[in-house]
Structures are given as structure tokens and as C-alpha cells.
């Protein structure tokens, strides 16, 4: 049985509810680093609102779990795969490539990272020619640069590639 068939909607529902319950507890603990009490003399502590909002979240997740156990929610009776195998490939590759893109932005800078991201993504998922992919992958970062740095004057992260842009800035601001 493939991994995608093992992860059914039913299993995903309970797993996500448990994870959200744990996150709510973590938020409550974190909120309690500040004062969580409230009275007329002391006014509201900084942790009061986040603590009780997290408590509310915990109650909601517990209710979701109870509905699951009592089979009152549609998901609790659904044994179909949470995600189809073909779609899983799209989603997994997209998520991994996005994570690598953001990691690369911190090191290589956004423009070079975008070139690699677009080239990989288009090569992997589309049937376009190498020429199309190359032109598309180069033009998109150039347009991004012109739009943000030239038009909006918002500098985007450039990482180790920053010195390569000095001549362009000299030209733009001279």
C-alpha cells in the first residue's frame, strides 16, 4: 500500500486535531510567561488575551476530537486518501522547491534563486522547450528587479550576489 493510500482523510483529521491541540497548549504555556490575570485594580495582564484565546482553541480542538470519536463529522467516516498519488507529486515537489527557494534567497539572493527555481519548476512540470524555459527563467527575475528596485525602490535580498548589482545601482542612481 502506497503512503498516500495509508494517509486517509480520517487519519489526517485526527492527526491534525491532535497537533492543533498541542499547539494550543504550547501557546497557553508561552502566554503564561506574562501575567494572565485581570481585575479592576491591575487591569489586564499582557498574557491574559493570548492565554484565553489559546484555551478557547484547545476547547475547539477537543470538541473536534470528540466529534471524531463519536463519528459525528464527515471526516471521521472518510477512508478515502487524503491526497491522490498524482496530486501528491505536484504538492510535495512544490513545497520542497519553495522551501529550497526561501533557503537559497538568504544565501544566493532572490534574483539568482528565482532563476534556479523557475528553471527547475518549469522543467519538472511543463513540457516547454529548453529555450522557452531559459528565457522565461531569466526574464521573470529581471522584471521583478525592475519593478521592486527601480519602480518601488524596495531592495530585495541579494545575499552573496550583492556586489554584482553595484554597477546596476550606479547606473540607476547616477
Amino acid at each position: 500500500m502506497s503512503v498516500t493510500k495509508k494517509i486517509t482523510v480520517k487519519r489526517a483529521e485526527i492527526a491534525v486535531a491532535v497537533i492543533l491541540a498541542l499547539c494550543s497548549i504550547a501557546l497557553m504555556i508561552k502566554s503564561a510567561e506574562n501575567r494572565i490575570t485581570w481585575n479592576a485594580e491591575e487591569n489586564m495582564g499582557a498574557g491574559f488575551l493570548p492565554f484565553y484565546l489559546s484555551l478557547g482553541m484547545l476547547i475547539c480542538t477537543v470538541l473536534t476530537i470528540i466529534k471524531f470519536v463519536l463519528k459525528r463529522s464527515p471526516q471521521s467516516k472518510d477512508d478515502s486518501p487524503f491526497i491522490e498519488a498524482e496530486a501528491f507529486k505536484y504538492i510535495a515537489v512544490t513545497i520542497i522547491s519553495l522551501v529550497i527557494l526561501v533557503l537559497a534567497i538568504g544565501y544566493l539572493g532572490i534574483y539568482f534563486s528565482l532563476i534556479f527555481f523557475l528553471a527547475f519548476y518549469l522543467r519538472y512540470f511543463s513540457s516547454k522547450s529548453i529555450l522557452f524555459i531559459s528565457v522565461f527563467s531569466l526574464i521573470t527575475p529581471v522584471l521583478t528587479f525592475l519593478f521592486f528596485e527601480w519602480l518601488l525602490k524596495i531592495p530585495l535580498p541579494q545575499g552573496i550576489s550583492e556586489p554584482l548589482f553595484y554597477p546596476v545601482y550606479d547606473f540607476m542612481y547616477s
Binding site: T94, L101, V102, I110, L114, F117, L118, Y121, L122, S126
Partner: peptide
């Protein structure tokens, strides 16, 4: 497959 990466670039 072409539109999606462009949207991702806009999002990032």
C-alpha cells in the same frame, strides 16, 4: 505549471 511558479514569485 507555468502560471503557478509566477504566482509563487509574486507571493514570495
Amino acid at each position: 505549471a507555468i502560471l503557478a511558479p509566477v504566482i509563487f514569485v509574486l507571493c514570495v
